[in-house]
Design a protein around this nucleic acid. Structure first.
Lengths: 237, 237
DNA sequence: GCAAAAAAGATTGCATACGATTCTTGTGCA
DNA sequence: TGCACAAGAATCGTATGCAATCTTTTTTGC
């Protein structure tokens, strides 16, 4: 069973409607940086691309706008979100608040099967880190996010799980925009440690490790405002 | 300036589109229990009621479905959410995780003007508690929720604020469904205490009070599954 | 040659139309 | 009387059309 399936099977009962499928594909594309921040997503273009009418394309874009992954401007259209440093800080502040608690909840409910899934997830992360190149880096960011989503699904709270889906997606955008170096290897070892804490039912330690992990991710960001993006932003890029 | 204005001015720049206005009115109606859980909200009905086409009515319902206030079933329509005891527990588990942190954040940023707003909010709560009758009780639940939203807006994190809007709205539904007695007076005094902690910049105390406050609200619920609602649910009520 | 105005083109907001699905109701048969 | 089934009504999912708004290009005046 795929990680993505495991995540979505809880929320989507089966093959929902088409708008949701389009939303998922667009979200993947945004998180993977195949769609750069600021890119315009016109209803017509999305519609023809997925071979649906503007109506359903519009619904998909509306969903993404609720998740904060696209920003819509009246009479102007939808654009891939371009989170400001302030928004980036808020994303991580939210994660610092929520994820340690999720770690504790997950620790109290984790099963042997979950541990197996975690190990598989860690292996996948490791593979992408071993590779090099921009594509591997994208996959690496995505895999890292999937680890956090897997943890949220194990925690068993559907509401928090949805919050985390949003926060992880937005984090991927932020990391792609403001990420500095390869925190990745470090992040991977921290994921491994967290799984270790879960395995030994040391909930307090899992929570603490998670908090530090988030701090490390944020510490790797360069959130100083840069002239370039700001200028582009002002010029309606 | 109204509390609601203060809350929404942060997220809505100005007069957004009509769907959003309809969503707000419907949300108020749901939170106030003028629309009972399980009530069908047909697109056509909503449309004619607000004098718009089905298109925009549908958009409003989609928004509410994202917030978890309505549940939509394919080819069947939208219904006011009827949260199960399990969902209720998840709502409060989420609040226990988030709100103490929000209290700390708010404590670090609260201004004199905010304190004035808090006092006004407390006064309003007190008025509704003094009154009696079902209408006053509705207003009371809503005012109590507004207190938490005001706190979230003071905390200054737009993402957490949106999460709280959703959680407070869903809590109102849960309290209306499973609420037992008048925790209200108790809740009011706890709100007053929290404002006191904010005023004296005792963040740790504010956080602790908030956690207990949530525990008290949840303790007042009767989350045992009842035959009545379960049967209705099974019969697709 | 450059700035401002005007027209053309593109895109969104919204309403409406039509096929598909579900619900309701009435009828026939056991 | 009770149940199965089918016709009709109601509602949803989606496509398309038109007016309003925004963007871009062309034209005009200085």
């Amino acid at each position: 069973m795929n990680i993505a399936d495991q995540i979505y099977s809880a929320t989507d009962s089966a093959t929902q409607d088409r708008a949701q499928a389009i939303r998922d594909q667009l979200r993947d594309a945004i998180v993977d940086r195949r769609l750069a921040p600021g890119t315009k997503l016109s209803e017509g273009e999305v519609g023809t691309l997925f071979d649906v009418s503007r109506t359903v394309a519009r619904a998909a874009l509306q969903m993404l706008s609720f998740e904060g992954l696209v920003r819509t401007e009246r009479n102007r259209g939808a654009f891939v979100a371009n989170p400001s440093p302030e928004e980036a800080r808020q994303v991580f502040a939210s994660r610092r608040l929520i994820e340690p608690g999720i770690a504790i909840a997950a620790c109290g409910r984790v099963t042997a099967a979950d541990i197996v899934a975690f190990r598989a997830q860690l292996d996948e992360e490791g593979r992408f880190i071993a590779e090099r190149g921009p594509n591997a880096r994208r996959s690496e960011i995505k895999a890292s996010g999937d680890f956090h989503l897997l943890l949220a699904s194990v925690a068993g709270n559907a509401i928090l799980q949805r919050f985390m889906e949003e926060l992880v997606a937005r984090s991927s955008l932020v990391i792609a925009l403001y990420g500095r170096s390869g925190v990745s290897a470090c992040g991977h070892s921290e994921h491994t440690e967290i799984v270790g804490a879960l395995e030994s039912s040391d909930c307090e330690r899992a929570s603490r490790l998670m908090l530090h992990h988030i701090d490390h991710i944020e510490a790797d960001l360069d959130l100083r405002v840069r002239a370039g993006p700001a200028l582009k932003e002002a010029l309606n890029f």
